[in-house]
Structure formats: structure tokens, C-alpha cells
Design a protein around this nucleic acid. Structure first.
Lengths: 218, 218
DNA sequence: CACCAGATGTGTACAGTGGAAACATTGAGC
DNA sequence: GCTCAATGTTTCCACTGTACACATCTGGTG
């Protein structure tokens, strides 16, 4: 426990309340709570933060959080939703930068974008795939955001099959294979479940190369 | 809450204490706690069980669990360790059944064994990759068991490269790519993070087929 | 067989958790 | 300038993991 320090924010998560000193209303508590929660997830590599902790870091009583989120679960879901929007943006950027190129090249770009997003935004990424969020599909906007991201991948694969660049297989299933590969690598890298990790870049490149070779039309 | 019923074990986890009725010493409490915890993980799809719950199901006071495990964390670690032994056994069986065949066939068999193990033993599998266990490497026997499993895969890949069946790449890194693929698919299937899931068998077959194609020596 | 020590189980206590409810303070629009 | 909904605080509750003192059993020794 006691990961966060209140006074000064020497290490770990910085004290939020520094310049605004003692106003009753925070002003942007909702965004602050989200940000602090993400930082907490990134620090401990898990969505096991505490409402009371992040409220304290935000300089506010723990009950104040419940004015903005009905539950801890909903806070997590909001973070996950934002995360899917961010991933979608990364996907679109990757597609834009590879607009004129082959479908295979674009799918490779999507794969790289996925893994890099996971490594650069581990807090969002962990929230997105936190187990409890999936099971209850009580947040339609969340599952909608997730479906849209996956849809982008399915579209790219579908076009690749139509253009005879990829093997003739069910587009959805082939997209799932792509997703599984990049998803698995993302988590293995994030969790450092690798004894002596080689340079991540090198491993990512190899994985994408092999994935591409496996998808290619023979 | 209240997943478990005490009386009769109508649904959910069955009451453990049925025939031994009221002995002060349980006799095999350690094994019982492990088993109940695994069932709990399987039911809710997460390692969020409660010591007090599983103790109650085992017919014992919650403090009794601490005679056998120093903490909840250690209980989880023991389950994970057993899980890695089980996976190792599955690997060896898969290799035995494909003894005379090509390296590629054997690696495919390992991949299938991995995914099937995850689906058939979700409790063990979730415990094995529960985040908190990885970070603290305080249980050497656990990380040893995990390393041995991965070593089996690395060996198979190494031999495949030597025999010119697989692309010339770093064996460890190539093994990680294999692992990432089957690991990712396992979790996507387990978490049902798939809107309208196709027949799992079909998807597994496709994934292994594409993985194999991507690894093959050109 | 009697006994006793260590293993195993029980009851109770404590700080920390998510959440609800009642009350306090604020600032934006009339 | 007043008011009232939005936002914050206090306090409370049931529940959690874990520690500790005490109770009970069981296997080995005299």
C-alpha cells in the first residue's frame, strides 16, 4: 500500500492539488480522477487501484468520486472506452499513412499500431481488457467502441481477401487470428512474461513479418 | 456476491463437507482449498475469489486457510504452479503422440495442446497468468515451472530451424511469436471477447494453420 | 497405556475497501 | 441578491485479508 504520496508528489503520482489550493469545488474532478487512475494502473501494472487512493491524490474525499461515477466499475469502463477511441485513432492514422499501399502493408501497419498503442498506453490498454468489463455488457457505448475497432481490422482483411492478397478464408475468422497474434504479443510484452526480453522492436518486427507471411495468398 | 451456497451444493460449487460431517481436522484441507478456489475462478472467470468464501465452502473457518498458505497470493501461486505442471504434461503428451512426425507437425501439436489446455482448465490457466504473480518473482518454483514449459517450445522451434523446416530466425524470438499467437487466441476465446464466436475448433484450426504457414521455411 | 508437543482449526480484532445516506458548500441563472 | 441543482464532506455499513491468542486433535515417546 501507500504507493502514492500526498505531499509534493516526489515520486509516483504527482500531487494534483498544487496550484489550485483548497477550493471546495475541484472544477475538473472527473478528468483528474480518470488521469490519476490511469497512472495508478500503469504504475502497478494492474487495475487494482483504490477509489480512496485516487481521490486522495486528486485532493478530494473518496465519496466525491461517486458524484462522477456510479461505481469503480464504471470508472474503469470509461477509461476503457476512451482507450478504444484512442486505439481507433491510431488505426486511422496508420491507415492514412499507408493509404496507397497494398492491403498486406496496411494490415501490417495496423498490427504495429496495435502493439505500439499497448506499450505506449499501458493504463488504457489494461483497462480495455480488464476481465470484469467484458463479462457484463452493461455499457453499450463501451462494447460499441470496441466493436468499431475490430471492425476496422475486419474491413482491411476483407479487402485483402477480395484482392487476392490474403488466403481465401473467412474474413472475420482471419481477422481474429490477426487480432489474437498482436493481442498476445502485446500482453506478453506488457507483462514482461519473457525471461530475458530481446529488443521489443525487433520482436515486434519479427512477429508482424511472420504474421504477414502466414496470411499471404500462396 | 453469494455465488456459493452452503447447504447441499445445489448449483455452483458443491458442498465439500458432505460425508465427513464435523470432524475438527479436515484431513485434506490444503487440496480442498485449491480445488474450491479453482472452481471459483472458473465460475466467475477471474481470480477474484475470497478466502472467506472458499473456506466456507470447504466447511472451515476462514482463518484455517492461513495454516496452509501464508497469503491469498501464495494460494494463487500454488495453483499457478500446478497449472504449469499440467500444461507441461499436455505438451509432453502432444510430443509423444507426434513423435515420428516433422517439427512443424509437432509445433502445431504444441499449439493445439496449449489452447486446449486453456479452454479445458480455465481456472488453472487464469491463475497462471494472473498479473500479480508475474511481477513479484518471489516464488522461484513457480517461475521455474513456467520457464520449463516455455523451454519445451523453444527446443521444438530450435530443432525445426536446424532441420530447415522453419525460417532462419532467432529460435527464442520465433518461439515467442508462436507463444504470443496461441496465448492471445487462448485468452480471446476464454474471455469470449468475440461478438459472435464461430465454432472454437474451427478458429483454432485456422489459427494453427496460419501460424504454421508463417513459420515455414520458404 | 498415558501423555505431551506440534499440527491444525476457531474466535476475535484491526485497518482498509466499495458504496450509501445525510448534510454542507458553491456558483450560475433568474 | 436569491435560490437551487451540482458537487463536495462526514459518517456509516458490510465485507475483505491478515494477525494473534486460544482450542482441539493426533502421532510418537516414556
Amino acid at each position: 500500500m501507500e504507493i502514492f504520496r500526498q505531499s509534493g508528489g516526489v515520486d509516483g503520482i504527482s500531487e494534483i492539488n498544487s496550484e489550485r489550493t483548497l477550493r471546495y469545488h475541484h472544477g475538473e474532478l472527473r478528468e483528474t480522477l480518470v488521469r490519476v487512475a490511469i497512472e495508478a494502473i500503469e504504475q502497478r501494472g494492474e487495475a487494482s487501484f483504490t477509489i480512496r487512493e485516487i481521490a486522495k491524490v486528486a485532493g478530494v474525499s473518496h465519496a466525491a468520486a461517486y458524484r462522477h461515477f456510479r461505481s469503480k466499475h464504471e470508472l474503469l469502463a470509461r477509461i476503457a472506452e476512451e482507450g478504444f477511441y484512442g486505439l481507433q485513432a491510431s488505426f486511422h492514422q496508420a491507415l492514412g499513412e499507408n493509404a496507397g499501399r497494398s492491403c498486406r502493408a496496411r494490415i501490417k501497419a495496423l498490427g504495429e499500431a496495435y502493439i505500439r498503442y499497448a506499450l505506449q498506453h499501458p493504463g488504457y490498454f489494461r483497462a480495455m481488457f480488464h476481465l470484469e468489463l467484458r463479462s457484463h455488457s452493461d455499457l453499450p457505448s463501451l462494447s460499441g467502441a470496441a466493436s468499431r475497432v475490430f471492425g476496422t481490422l475486419v474491413d482491411a482483411v476483407t479487402e485483402g481477401i477480395a484482392r487476392r492478397e490474403l488466403v481465401r478464408r473467412s474474413p472475420r475468422e482471419l481477422a481474429m487470428v490477426v487480432w489474437a497474434t498482436i493481442h498476445g504479443l502485446s500482453f506478453l510484452l506488457l507483462d514482461q512474461q519473457i525471461d530475458s526480453p530481446p529488443a521489443p522492436d525487433e520482436l515486434i518486427e519479427l512477429a508482424i513479418e511472420r504474421l504477414d507471411a502466414g496470411l499471404a495468398h500462396p
